[in-house]
Design a protein around this nucleic acid. Structure first.
Length: 503
RNA sequence: GGGCCAUUAGCUCAAUUGGCAGAGCAACGGACUCUUAAUCCGCAGGUUGAAGGUUCGAUUCCUUCAUGGCCCA
């Protein structure tokens, strides 16, 4: 009788199921039951019950009655005529709810006819343990507090189609517990990072996402428009310059966990919006930040995994400090087949670039060429955590020159599992040098590099007031979470990755 | 941007050389007092991603498009 009264023969299954469930919701209303009630009070979480009553047996609750009220989504219904078992998922885990026809009021038993997998229910009653040893709630009262209208994916094979998983992440989260676990780990990473920096007297700050001028990285921005001010604005590609303005202002240790936006392609490692940590510390050098980074990552890894070694894409990765240090020049020698004299030799680099498949190498300035060759030759080989140090000046417009070699800067990038994870440097605080670097970038842009840095007069003015010696770092949080959860795609650590609209 | 692959029931997947589009789970009806992917009986569910083309006949071959995946840039 609850089946759709008008059997339109050719109606697709999904529509039929939705119609059936709507009819069940209406049947509830007819009985005075609200299918979207919000007055059920929960007393216990599933996991807490399992923890508290580990080892309980059938006899345990016979003398000592423990009354509970639990609520969650029904993930399975196993019916045996006069006994029904429900698998109930709440935010902590799963608990079984048992209904015995003899032990529940008739209206509760009748409600089972209106119950579907996927419904959110509340159950009250004493705890019990089944003959098979399953801790359960022996329901004496049961309510459907939210009627679900759409069928969930199959319980065993689950939902695997990646497009559906990303577009309907809510379904993915309902049926795939490992996805919930990944995002819990993500929250734990962020929490650990915050605590780590807070304990070291860093101040958490927020700076604008909407900026009249973008900068702080080499990337193309998203642009937008402010109507009232009739003004072109950009979404930030990095918070760097604003954070250093704060260092000028006397906030000598700052950090921002920030969403950045870069107008570039989508891949397993790139999402147009992503989360970065940037922090700045006055009176510190990039060398100090290497030590800080080792401490942060080893501590984080141990916190999450109780060990400093984890498996990432089949590689055993150790975050035990110290990490390897490798200068760009040494890397060119070791991985690009150059000898020491050739790392600054344009012809030798071009030969290597050709051999490694670097495109448009001819037009690149020396420092860019060195980095293209380095990345092509070495990046994939840097599996264990490695600080790549001493970058060419040209590719580092915001970094301090090395005192020992003014063609290089005090900078490092951290590579793990062949991926860039962090970028850091001692900050350039000489305003006149900074202006020249910006001018070089503007020239680079004029030569066709649309990722080159624009001139920022106000930033130079800030430096003219004097920024204390400082070092700063950016860490890709999404990539860090990918490492810590061994996720192959950035889309697996972002709830709602950018997708084309559904057809 | 280029190459390759995929798209079939709500979900996960089949379909021989181009020849009646199937299964499991979920749903629906029924049996069942201890299940853990319960089991058993029955019944239903399809614009085969979209649009064209070839053919007596297309899930299958061809073209274009859409979406996704992998690789390359």
């Amino acid at each position: 009788m609850l089946a759709a009264e008008t059997p339109e023969e050719c109606r697709p299954m999904e529509e039929t199921i939705i119609a059936q469930r709507r009819a069940k919701a209406e049947a509830m209303r007819a009985q005075g039951l609200h299918p979207y009630a919000n007055d059920f009070r929960v007393t216990h979480l599933a996991q807490a019950l399992h923890d508290e009553h580990a080892g309980a047996t059938e006899a345990t609750f016979e003398e000592a009655r423990v009354e509970v009220a639990v609520a969650g989504r029904v993930m399975a219904v196993r019916s045996f005529g006069r006994v029904v078992f429900l698998a109930l998922d709440d935010r902590s885990g799963r608990i079984q709810v048992n209904l015995f026809k003899k032990a529940v009021p008739a209206e509760v038993w009748a409600l089972l006819k209106l119950l579907d997998v996927g419904d959110i229910v509340g159950a009250e009653g004493p705890l019990m343990v089944t003959r098979k040893g399953e801790l359960s709630v022996k329901a004496e009262a049961l309510r459907i507090v939210t009627k679900s209208l759409r069928p969930l994916p199959e319980k065993w094979a689950g939902l695997t189609d990646v497009a559906t998983r990303y577009r309907q992440r809510y379904v993915d989260l309902i049926v795939n517990p490992e996805v919930r676990e990944t995002f819990r780990k993500r929250a734990e990473v962020v929490r650990y990072v915050r605590r780590f920096l807070d304990e070291r007297d860093f101040l958490e700050v927020e700076t604008p996402i909407l900026q009249p001028l973008y900068g702080g990285a080499s990337a193309r921005p998203f642009s937008t428009h402010h109507n009232t001010l009739d003004m072109q604005l950009y979404l930030r590609i990095a918070p760097e310059l604003n954070l250093k303005r704060l260092v000028v202002g006397g906030l000598h240790r700052v950090y921002e966990l920030n969403r950045c936006f870069r107008n570039e392609g989508v891949s397993t490692r790139h999402n147009p919006e992503f989360t970065m940590l940037e922090f700045y510390q006055a009176f510190a050098t990039y060398d100090d930040l290497m030590k800080l980074t080792e401490e942060l990552l080893e501590g984080l890894c141990r916190h999450l995994h109780d060990t400093a070694e984890i498996e990432v894409e089949g590689h055993r990765i150790s975050f035990a400090a110290p990490f390897r240090r490798l200068s760009v020049y040494d890397g060119l020698v070791e991985y690009a087949g150059l000898d020491r004299a050739q790392v600054t030799d344009r012809d030798a680099l071009l030969e290597a670039a050709g051999r490694l498949g670097v495109k448009k190498a001819d037009s690149l300035p020396l420092g860019y060429l060195q980095m293209e060759v380095f990345e092509a030759a070495a990046e994939e080989a840097l599996i264990q955590p490695t600080f790549v140090t001493d970058f060419p000046l040209e590719v580092s417009p915001l970094s301090r020159k090395k005192d020992s070699d003014p063609t290089l800067v005090d900078r490092f990038e951290l590579y793990v599992a062949g991926r860039e994870l962090a970028n850091a440097f001692s900050e350039l605080n000489d305003p006149d040098d900074q202006r020249r670097r910006f001018e070089a970038q503007v020239a680079q842009r004029a030569a066709g590099d649309d990722e080159a840095h624009p001139m920022d007069e106000d930033y130079v003015r800030a430096l003219e007031y004097g920024m204390p010696p400082a070092a700063g770092q950016g860490i890709g949080i999404d990539r860090l979470v990918m490492l810590m959860t061994d996720s192959a795609s950035i889309r697996d650590v972002i709830f709602f990755p950018l997708m084309r609209p559904e057809g």
